[in-house]
Design a protein around this nucleic acid. Structure first.
Length: 154
DNA sequence: GTATTGATCTTCT
DNA sequence: GAAGATCAATACA
């Protein structure tokens, strides 16, 4: 279950789409529902879902998930058995779910992806993580009280 | 517990 | 050539 996200759009200086379409960020300007997967710091992958038909260049970074199914497989991929360390962080969840650049630009509405809407969850917001001061908009969203966030929402 | 640093690739200057 | 939507190991308190 997705428990933490961050929002980016083309008007946001911290967004990859801010500079306009390039080879790397092309999926952000592609069809809504597409995956945007990019490498960061040379070794981790980050997974976004393209959104907002009315505003090209918009996407949501998935920052943390709560393991509900297949924790055993995730532990094997991540090399840890600590539940809180499995998927709490954009790079970690990609390793846990085996998301790589091979899935870049693929619609998340098709295999190997499956998305379902969560029911009755309370969402809170806060400043984004890892964005330089002044650019961190309050566009981070998390499940209230979740123990599986990459960082507390405060 | 917090702080620091290395890993190592892609993109843009 | 520098910086980055990060993580894990290490050093120290």
């Amino acid at each position: 279950m997705i428990v933490e996200t961050e929002a980016y759009d083309a008007l946001d200086p911290a967004s990859h789409s801010f500079i306009g379409p390039t080879v790397r960020n092309a999926p952000m300007f592609g069809p809504v529902g597409g995956a945007y997967v990019y490498r960061i710091y040379g070794l981790h992958w980050c997974f976004n879902i393209v959104c907002d038909e009315q505003a090209p260049g918009s996407a949501v970074l998935i920052r943390a998930i709560e393991p509900v199914h297949g924790a055993d497989v995730m532990m094997e991929r991540r090399g840890t058995t600590r539940l809180q360390d499995l998927c709490a962080g954009p790079g970690r969840l990609c390793q846990a779910l085996s998301i790589t650049g091979a899935l870049n630009a693929i619609p998340v509405t098709k295999a190997p992806f499956t998305l379902r809407l969560a029911q009755g969850v309370a969402v809170v917001s806060g400043p984004r993580i890892g964005i330089r001061r002044g650019l961190s908009t309050p566009w981070r969203f998390g499940l209230e009280g979740s123990r599986f966030l990459s960082r507390p929402m405060t």
